[in-house]
Amino acid sequence: MTELLSSPLFGVVLTLVTFRLAELLYRRSGFILFNPVFVSICAIIAILKVSQISYADYARGGDLILFLLGPSVVALALPLWQRREQVLKRKLPILAGVCAGALASIASAAGTAWLLGASPEVVLSLVPKSVTTPIAIGISEQIGGIVPLTAALVVLTGCLGAICGPEFCRLIGIRKPTSLGLAIGTASHGIGTARVLAEDRLAGAVSGLAIGLNGLTTAVVVPLLWFVFGWN
């Protein structure tokens, strides 16, 4: 039994079966909180905790699935290429939107946490939370945040955008596919993009673009701010 648990097959099968069931639950119920990524993460964590299986055992298989994320991000060039004319037509609004969003992210995350009395390391850990994981980790490390906390918050932020990003955007009058895609990609990186892409090709294309643009903007702006204001 223990041999089977430490085989990569365990993590792969657990992830695939859970995700498939979560997808069915989402489709049947149509309830936004039953977002398949969010439900799968919660369910797998619960299963591992209850059966006292270590994360390391799970990760042997989980890492195989995670590996496919790399080429999928590269594949985001595909929708972007197919919708290039519509995207290029709005290149300035798109760039301005990402810059505004990146600054708003840094200010609002750090500001809210600081107002609520978070310790300085926690405030700094929140700064890059809207950026795709590898960039977020690099920034957190650079400014003295708690790297694992940043990594966890990146996932949380992504799930939030995937669960209710499109609904929230429509509620506050963001309806254009480019605006909606940009908003969700900038706020919730890849996890948000995965949902948007399944619903609207143009919005998904812009959302994918926003992952790169926000990553780039935040990676440039945060060290600059840090240098200017001497945060520590």
Binding site: R90, A96, T112, F168, T178, A187
Partner: peptide, 29 residues
């Protein structure tokens, strides 16, 4: 350890970013 500022900060900021980004893009475009 510091769940309140962490969760509230993350949630508030995620919605702020969506609103600011989407509005700026839509306003200018």
């Amino acid at each position: 350890r510091e769940w309140l500022p962490i969760i509230v900060g993350t949630v508030v900021s995620t919605f702020v970013v969506m609103a600011v980004t989407g509005w700026v893009e839509q306003l200018l475009g």
